[in-house]
Amino acid sequence: MNHPITALVIMGVAGCGKTCVSEALCQLSGATAIEGDSFHPAANIEKMSAGIPLNDEDRAGWLDSLCDELRRIDALGQRPVLTCSALKHIYRERLRSALPGLGFVFLELTPEVAAERVSHRPGHFMPATLIESQFATLESPKGEPLTLALNASIHSVDELAVQAHLWWLEHGLKRAS
């Protein structure tokens, strides 16, 4: 490993618990949460709301905005924790290029559990009908450097956050001064 992990991306398909785990992890670690969904341009939100999956072109500007925000939070001396689906290897590499030492926590779950969770999520633009396309796009990060895979189907949010926090501590999390 060239760099200690100084920032994290909580990644996975819709419904895996990225936001909940990020919030719990930030409470444990004193890190700063970045909600990736809030950086989607209106066109992406409209497309997903209509049940149309995003493509690489749709995600390009969004990923650039996330890279900028990771660098901005890091430059403030804070430890960022970004929620982002990061479904493809090329997306993860784009995010890694923004910040040396960026680690990934992959929240795995089954398509059935994801669909069930998303169908009961109030007020979100991502319909359960897009779950299948997310799994079709997903390139598992297992085996990539600085990546921890956790089963989000069987662990509670708190358990996932604690596991991610301990892993981060082991791989370079610096305590706030």
Score class of each variant (00 low, 15 high):
157 V>E: 05
13 V>F: 10
6 T>V: 02
55 N>R: 02
90 I>T: 14
34 I>A: 05
104 F>T: 02
148 L>G: 03
152 A>G: 02
123 G>H: 15
104 F>C: 01
88 K>N: 02
76 L>D: 11
38 S>M: 14
101 G>Q: 03
126 M>T: 07
129 T>K: 14
103 G>T: 07
29 S>Y: 04
21 V>C: 08
166 L>V: 12
123 G>K: 07
39 F>K: 08
85 S>L: 07
155 H>S: 13
71 R>C: 13
7 A>I: 13
89 H>A: 15
125 F>N: 12
162 V>K: 04
33 A>D: 04
103 G>E: 03
174 K>Q: 06
120 H>E: 04
158 D>P: 06
56 D>S: 12
37 D>M: 11
61 G>A: 15
30 G>C: 08
113 V>L: 10
93 E>H: 10
61 G>H: 12
127 P>A: 14
149 A>P: 10
89 H>F: 08
124 H>S: 06
14 A>T: 04
58 D>F: 10
146 L>R: 06
37 D>R: 07
135 F>H: 08
46 E>F: 08
167 W>H: 04
74 D>T: 15
35 E>A: 11
48 M>W: 06
8 L>P: 03
44 N>Q: 05
153 S>W: 08
77 G>T: 15
60 A>D: 14
147 T>Q: 03
101 G>N: 02
144 E>V: 05
173 L>D: 04
81 V>S: 07
173 L>H: 07
150 L>W: 03
52 I>N: 11
74 D>K: 14
96 R>K: 12
65 S>K: 10
152 A>R: 05
71 R>V: 15
147 T>D: 02
163 Q>A: 11
151 N>W: 02
99 L>E: 05
121 R>S: 10
132 E>W: 09
113 V>F: 09
30 G>T: 00
142 K>E: 15
81 V>G: 03
164 A>I: 01
175 R>E: 12
173 L>P: 02
171 H>P: 02
155 H>Y: 08
164 A>K: 04
58 D>A: 00
16 C>T: 15
34 I>W: 00
105 V>F: 01
146 L>H: 05
57 E>P: 00
75 A>C: 06
78 Q>E: 13
138 L>M: 10
45 I>W: 08
57 E>W: 14
176 A>V: 06
139 E>M: 09
129 T>Q: 13
47 K>V: 05
62 W>R: 11
107 L>D: 06
51 G>M: 03
4 P>E: 10
31 A>G: 11
14 A>F: 00
1 M>F: 07
104 F>N: 01
97 S>Y: 09
4 P>R: 06
6 T>E: 01
49 S>Q: 09
119 S>C: 06
49 S>I: 11
1 M>K: 13
99 L>S: 07
141 P>W: 00
71 R>S: 14
119 S>I: 14
5 I>W: 03
9 V>Y: 03
55 N>D: 15
140 S>P: 04
100 P>A: 15
75 A>T: 13
25 L>D: 01
121 R>F: 08
176 A>H: 14
82 L>C: 08
175 R>K: 12
67 C>L: 10
141 P>L: 04
37 D>H: 13
127 P>T: 13
161 A>C: 06
7 A>P: 03
19 T>E: 09
99 L>T: 03
158 D>W: 07
137 T>N: 01
